[in-house]
Amino acid sequence: MTPAELAAALSLPGRVAIPWTDPACDPARPVTLHCYRGCRATPDSPVVLVQHGMGRNGDEYRDFWVPAADRHGLLVVATTFAKADWPEAEHYNNGLVLDGQGRVRPRGAWAYAIPLRVFAALRDAGVTRRPRAHLFGHSAGGQFGHRLLSTQPHDLLEAVTVGNPGWYSLPVLDAPFPAGLGGIGLGDAEVERLLAYPMTILAGDRDTETSGPSLPSQPEAVAQGPHRFARAHAYLAAGRAEAARRGVACNWRLVPVAGIGHDGAAMSRVCAALWFEGRLIDAGEAGAAAQGAL
């Protein structure tokens, strides 16, 4: 898609689905940009990059952000990795870092680079003049989001919040990816850059399922805790321990969210209120449901 075509597709307020191919990653694996331009959005408005869960429902995750987009004049872009082209966790959650034989692919070909290249294309097209974007990911998208922050440059990122990931890549080099960050070409500089970034981890205090098809159950995941709420605390503790070992700061924060379980819609509203209103809303205001989107 040319810059002019991208600008035309996003020239009016409302929803639009834009097919997108990233040649640097894998041209045989397209994605879809499910976008919403708020009614008051301008090229100087914040851009929110959204990463969906294992349901690959980027259109729904985009829609979770529509009220905030209209209220605050946002441009929302949910880069959607469809099951047909990105079928397994290795392709989406784990970023296509390794090929089918377990070999490390070139870093520029990792799927984690795609949302940032989309944002760069939005800038090149004049859709936005913002130098940096906000990034939110929930569930599998939270796995994607914190691994993106772990592996990619931060110069295009204004704020990063992840909600309810099923498990985490610990900020250590002595555990192989995806349990840690070892064996994929990262070094001390990347780990310390990750620890320094003020990432926010949202953890629903009712996200306490200990089994089920969407909860990662490999030994490395179980070692982080019995459920997502515990694993969020374990990840923060691991970050602080690694930072202390290195003699650097860990600037992450964990925000427990009372009354919310594994609910992508509610967590999206919580994140929007934190970013753009500076407040933590309660479960009732967030519209928490008994069963949210993955």
Rank of each mutant, 00 (worst) to 15 (best):
G182A: 06
C25D: 12
G108H: 10
E209L: 15
G284D: 15
G73H: 09
N164M: 02
L96Y: 15
T42H: 09
G292C: 04
E158H: 12
S150C: 11
A120K: 13
M267E: 15
S211G: 14
F276K: 07
G185K: 07
H146K: 06
L254S: 00
H134W: 14
A289Q: 15
A283I: 01
V16F: 04
V255L: 04
L294T: 14
A8Q: 15
G180P: 06
G142Q: 10
A84D: 10
P13E: 02
V222T: 12
A111K: 08
D174S: 00
Y235P: 02
E242C: 02
N93G: 14
L6S: 06
T128V: 07
V172K: 09
T42A: 08
H233I: 05
G73V: 04
R130G: 11
S211A: 15
P106F: 03
P23R: 01
E220V: 12
R246G: 07
V160Q: 13
Y61K: 08
V162D: 06
D282N: 11
H72P: 09
G58K: 04
L149A: 13
D26T: 02
H146C: 03
A82L: 10
A28R: 13
G14K: 01
C271Y: 15
D174G: 01
H72F: 11
A78N: 07
I184Q: 08
M1P: 13
G204R: 00
D263P: 00
T21F: 06
Q143P: 02
G137E: 13
S45F: 03
A113I: 11
L195E: 10
A273H: 14
W252L: 08
D63T: 13
W110Q: 05
G187C: 07
G58Y: 03
P178F: 09
G180T: 03
E60G: 14
A17R: 14
S150E: 13
D188N: 11
F64V: 09
L157E: 09
H154N: 12
G142K: 03
G108W: 10
N94I: 04
Y36A: 02
A69T: 06
A243H: 03
V127R: 10
L202P: 09
P165H: 01
P30Y: 00
G183K: 01
A121V: 08
G247F: 00
G225F: 06
T42D: 09
L148G: 08
Y168P: 02
T161F: 12
A266P: 10
G261R: 06
L74K: 07
V270Y: 09
G187Y: 02
D124C: 10
I18P: 08
D26N: 11
G145E: 06
V222C: 05
Q152V: 09
V191M: 07
W252M: 07
E158N: 07
L148I: 05
V77D: 09
N164F: 00
G261Y: 07
I18C: 05
E209S: 14
L202E: 08
D85S: 13
A290I: 08
A84Y: 01
R253Q: 12
L215W: 04
I281K: 03
D63M: 04
H154W: 13
P30S: 04
W275K: 06
N93F: 13
